[in-house]
Design a protein around this nucleic acid. Sequence first.
DNA 1: TCCTGTGAAATACTTCACAGCT
DNA 2: AGCTGTGAAGTATTTCACAGGA
Lengths: 217, 217
Amino acid sequence: MAQQKIPEVVVDRLPTYVRALTLLREEGISVVSSQELGVRLRVTPAQIRKDLSYFGRFGKQGRGYNIDNLIRELRSILGLTKEWPMALVGAGQLGQAILRYTGFVPEGFRVVAAFDTDKRQIGRKIGPVVVQDVAELPQTVVERNVDIGIVAVPSATAQGVIDTLVRSGIRAILNYAPMSPHIPENVLVREVDPVVALQSMTFYLKLDEKQREKAAQ
Amino acid sequence: MAQQKIPEVVVDRLPTYVRALTLLREEGISVVSSQELGVRLRVTPAQIRKDLSYFGRFGKQGRGYNIDNLIRELRSILGLTKEWPMALVGAGQLGQAILRYTGFVPEGFRVVAAFDTDKRQIGRKIGPVVVQDVAELPQTVVERNVDIGIVAVPSATAQGVIDTLVRSGIRAILNYAPMSPHIPENVLVREVDPVVALQSMTFYLKLDEKQREKAAQ
DNA sequence: TCCTGTGAAATACTTCACAGCT
DNA sequence: AGCTGTGAAGTATTTCACAGGA
């Protein structure tokens, strides 16, 4: 069986399936149909079935999916059975909030090192780590087998930080800086940008206001 | 001219165009071609031209786009010419970081009120606001004309908070809680979820590792 | 009967390629 | 000569609809 190419959109949806399934499990539910899961996630049942079908046959006809089993399968597909060490760059306001964020560890993501250029931050213990000088980054990344970098520095310095991370051999970047970085093909990036999220909503808010005005005439 | 329906993906890209154009302007550049902008953003020039063509004709043949003008047009299209007041719910670790985040205000987003149920938080001044009791939320939302709510409470209580926001007349929600909320059709949501972003990257990291193993055999 | 898994159809999105303006 | 704006072509993604297993 030649592994067909999986669409990126499909991969992007899998984590939300895992999350919803985990919440269902906490409610004591053990089996779910694509219909029921679709209602929760506001997606069509056909989409869920189609997405899962890229990876295997996990359901039982007439019943649905065993939640424990499906969670296990999806976590394995997504590479979530191991722990992923991460390195954070930028120990300012935002970086500190990230270091104190408790949502990463239960999912297997652990910030194992933090870096800054600011002498006042270096040596400080924040959350689980002591802030190091950025100069030590390349060595630490190699020593601690870090594949994922988190960028939490101002836009102006972000590209430099990203270049350093890439040169150090990092393979994935979670970027909190509001800019679009230059990155080699083989390195992954995801942007975390609440402002961009807000700005696409205001388009529809404004549209809605216009329509109300028109309707009110 | 009947306004044709604009694809959502197009709207979602506009804020990144604004961002890139703004950075170009700061570099002192005043005109840009779709080609040049595409290189910055890692998208095709055709996509940029096509996206813009849904809204009008902003370029000059043979030259490109006047940056000042295009920024102004896009900001107007996105509804960014007014200030958007926002209400935050959840003044814990995460909520405090959001209140202290300086990236919203320059873009016209301002948190004008914050709410919590925790007696120890209520009355505290954090960043630009004093934390209020959630009981006061509906009234404040109406009085202060708040259209956008930010949810920064634990998953377990998020749905209740969202219901309250919706009942109070909010029209858009920026959700930091790692769950998928039930929301009426006419209310917008955007999820801010770094863990989901990480989990779709690990799929490819794992794939890459597998391929290396195979190659090494 | 209920619900999965999946080709096929429908829809959505992206890219091409070129007429036409500057 | 260079670059936009845009139908048309090409891909990608979603949804349909139904055979078949529990």
